[in-house]
């Protein structure tokens, strides 16, 4: 019941986001049809604006947009005039989702064990090394890691392709470049969670009952320690699934991340608003999912 209510709340939230995005993109200086070459007659520009209803009052445009949205139609891109926003999302989102999903798995597969070991061996050398490595990955941005990866794995050692998409080999470097930051982030969050869980009263009680250290760590502490990682994972997944401008640009990947940046510099109104909404929807859903997972992991959490 609680989750149904939350979903209901999402509707006005998305409405507000769409209204804000719709208004803000139009307030920015410059318009989709500002070009280096002005058409031979001002009449042409007027016709162009009329074709996309940009000559109507903003409120009327917004009403029209909402109506289309109700029918699942995000409108026609003002930059790619033969494509609807739906077409573009349909083509590009799966690519980004795949890459993001891979990076997510990579971040979890490396980050969780590293976090666990550094917490279990707190203060000893695995902790120092693990801590240093995760700090390093958090500090180096993807626009530094990606060219370095290309330089070593592709240019110097000729092991992996320099770019493009479509074969498993081409997915390795982008996955590393995109996931690296989150590896460190997950490892650090999990370590912190473990350490604070180990100090909590219920763990002390369990220890007093005579449980072994290993069982304690794996069965009792882990379950609570994973919570900060879970709540971080929601927005992180939303981020990863919607692509990365930098990684997609460097590796020449046909994902949606490039559109987030380019639609803004192109003043592609429909694309900008459509992507803002897409991101918002993903964020709302994933946060909801996070809250749901909480109820499974922590028996103390109950939503009314």
């Amino acid at each position: 019941m609680y989750f149904v209510k939350r979903l209901m709340y999402a509707v006005p939230l998305l409405l507000i986001i769409s209204a804000l995005a719709f208004g803000l993109v139009r307030m920015a200086p410059g318009s989709p049809f500002d070009r280096e070459r002005v058409p031979a007659s001002p009449e042409i520009e007027r016709q162009l604006k009329a074709k996309y209803h940009l000559d109507e009052p903003v409120i009327k445009q917004y009403g029209r947009y909402l109506n289309d949205l109700l029918h699942g139609d995000f409108g026609v891109s003002t930059k790619y005039r033969n494509h609807t926003v739906n077409d573009i999302i349909e083509q590009a989102l799966p690519v980004s989702m795949l890459l993001g999903g891979l990076a997510f798995c990579f971040a979890m597969a490396i980050g969780l064990p590293v976090g666990f070991i550094t917490a279990a061996r707190k203060g000893q050398w695995p902790d120092v090394i693990g801590g240093l490595l995760s700090l390093l990955t958090v500090c180096i941005p993807s626009f530094v890691i990606a060219p370095l990866l290309i330089l070593d794995f592709s240019v110097k050692w000729n092991l992996l392709p320099v770019g493009l998409w479509g074969t498993p080999a081409r997915m390795i470097l982008p996955t590393l470049a995109l996931g690296m930051f989150f590896v460190g982030k997950v490892a650090r969050l999990f370590r912190e969670g473990m350490i604070s869980a180990m100090q909590s009263e219920y763990v002390r009680a369990a220890r007093a009952k005579g449980l072994g250290e290993t069982t304690l760590l794996l069965k009792h502490a882990c379950r609570l320690a994973i919570l900060p990682v879970v709540s971080f994972a929601g927005p992180m997944l939303a981020d990863l699934l919607t692509g990365s401008f930098i990684v997609e640009n460097i590796f020449q990947i046909p994902g949606i991340g490039i559109f987030f940046v380019n639609s803004t510099s192109n003043r592609d109104y429909t694309m900008e608003v459509g992507l803002a909404l897409l991101y918002a929807i993903l964020l709302v859903l994933l946060n909801l999912l996070v809250d749901f997972i909480y109820t499974l992991l922590d028996p103390r959490v109950k939503y009314e």
Binding site: P39, A40, S41, I44, L48
Partner: peptide, 13 residues
């Protein structure tokens, strides 16, 4: 045609 809204229609002027 005005309905096409071709920005390069001037090439046919």
């Amino acid at each position: 045609d005005p309905l096409t809204a071709s920005e390069y229609a001037g090439q046919l002027f």
